[in-house]
Amino acid sequence: MKKKMRKFKIYRYDPEKDSKPYYREYSVETHEGMTLLDAIIHISENMDPSLSVRYSCRMSVCGSCGMSVNDSLKLACKTQLETLHGDVLKIEPLPSMKVIKDLVVDMEPFLDNLKKVKPYLITHTPDPAKERLQSVYDRELIDSSVDCILCGCCTTSCPVFWTDKGYLGPAAITKAFRFLYDSRDEGYEDRLHVLGGVGGVDKCHHAYRCVEACPKNINTTYAIDMVKKLILTGKRDTE
């Protein structure tokens, strides 16, 4: 296995003792197939146990380890080190969020935005005895949006969200899309005011940073546009 020493410059901040953030550099022997998360766990376990970071599944499904790597947002676990260039890799927490410690940020505002769009299936007709039928075609309309792992990479990459925390952000709106375009959902009226309101879909400037950042390849800007279209026309565009 090919081995190589690489340098990781990691953002450090402990509000208990640091007056301001700083960077600390670590040299790690890396190998083929090693992910950024592997390297960070190696640092945490063997070099500096004081480093704080969230991680769990290591297979890009739990959404814990979103972070900034050389200024782009990625899931550490899904990032092969071989794909990262530069002598020193700069590792920072998700931008524009309050840092709790080192790479751990406060996810509460992100989740509060999610809650605003009523992120659950809303039905007014009674549940049938068996499943609600849904055509293969209708199920495909929401196909990639249901893959969202709520890692926050999209929303925290959004330049509008950076300056305006009142904006719902791409993750919450993509979640709204996932329900509004679900043929079983009857919650259009319930969600309309928040999505069409002040912090809603109109804020999107099409920077496409969110699409670039999504580790699950969800076309978040498309989802935002489809919600915008639904609000303007009052009906789902299912063509």
């Binding site: 299936l121 499943e131 609600r132 055509s135």
Partner: peptide, 19 residues
Amino acid sequence: VYEMEHWGVPFSRTEEGKI
């Protein structure tokens, strides 16, 4: 399983629209 479908699980579908 039917309950989870009613709560919104995006199950894949048969040609008849069933789970």
